[in-house]
Design a protein around this nucleic acid. Structure first.
Length: 255
DNA sequence: GTTGAGCGTT
């Protein structure tokens, strides 16, 4: 939203856009206007904001009516501390003045003098690659939230590691301890397993919050085999019963 | 609540 144009950018006849970087996220056009207006006639000030949060992205575009004024503003405001942060002012690459540069008429107005010129070449390439605004926005957002993402990632990793460790710790533990005995614990296993599972159930439910169904699935296979065994014995008794029945019968002939 | 290389809408 342009400071002076509500329905969009104002009619620009011959304006020069300046790019203001390293400004605080709370700095608004109103804060920059008096600063830049002091060094020349400011036509428009625009601060790109995030469409989701609405916060400024940390840089602004200041349009001057004359190039000399813009140049002066750059020279005077570049490196100025605003809101406790040193801002960087330089000519914008994209804009009405960009056409002039395209003509090859203007030869690097500012950065060269200050020697602050960073990697300006690759920037152009990025813009060419960009097609969707979403991607562009996402990319920039990702860059900004790099620190945040890193923190989040660490947290997630730590949690995952801990969870996995715990899972692994219990798995072998149970198997090793009960694995010693034969099928005797097999029947007792489900009983104990369930009992223990219930103890940890609340904890897991709260921690995972309905996510990562892999955990239960992971544990499922472990419990699956032993669980399959119980149903078997269920039918066994039937046959065994018959066996018992047959047992006496078998003994009968023997006798 | 946080952040920090870069290039633009309403």
């Amino acid at each position: 939203m342009s400071r002076f144009g509500r329905s969009g950018p104002p009619p620009i006849r011959d304006t020069y856009s300046l790019l203001v970087l390293n400004i605080t996220f709370r700095t608004t056009a109103d804060d920059l206007f008096p600063l830049f207006d002091k060094y020349g006639e400011v036509v428009d000030i625009y601060i790109p904001r995030d469409r989701r949060t609405g916060d400024s992205r940390g840089f602004a575009f200041v349009r001057y009516k004359y190039e000399d004024e813009a140049q002066k503003a750059v020279d005077r405001l570049d490196g100025r501390v605003v809101d406790g942060r040193e801002i960087m002012v330089q000519f914008a690459k994209y804009g009405p003045n960009a056409e002039r540069i395209s003509k090859g008429r203007i030869v690097e107005p500012v950065p060269r003098s200050r020697g602050r010129s960073r990697s300006r070449s690759p920037r152009r390439r990025y813009r060419d690659d960009y097609r969707d605004d979403y991607r562009d926005r996402d990319y920039r957002r990702r860059s900004r939230s790099r620190s945040r993402e890193r923190y989040s990632r660490d947290s997630y990793r730590e949690r995952d590691y801990r969870r996995r460790s715990r899972s692994r710790s219990y798995s072998p533990d149970g198997y090793k301890k009960h694995g010693r005995d034969s099928l005797s614990p097999a029947r007792r296993s489900p009983s104990r397993s369930r009992s223990r599972s219930r103890s940890y159930s609340p904890d897991d439910t709260k921690r995972r919050a309905g996510d990562s169904s892999a955990s239960p699935a992971s544990r499922s296979p472990s419990r699956s085999p032993p669980r399959k065994t119980p149903p078997s014995p269920e039918r066994s008794p039937v046959r065994r019963k018959r066996n018992d029945d047959r047992s006496p019968r078998s003994r009968s002939p023997s006798t």
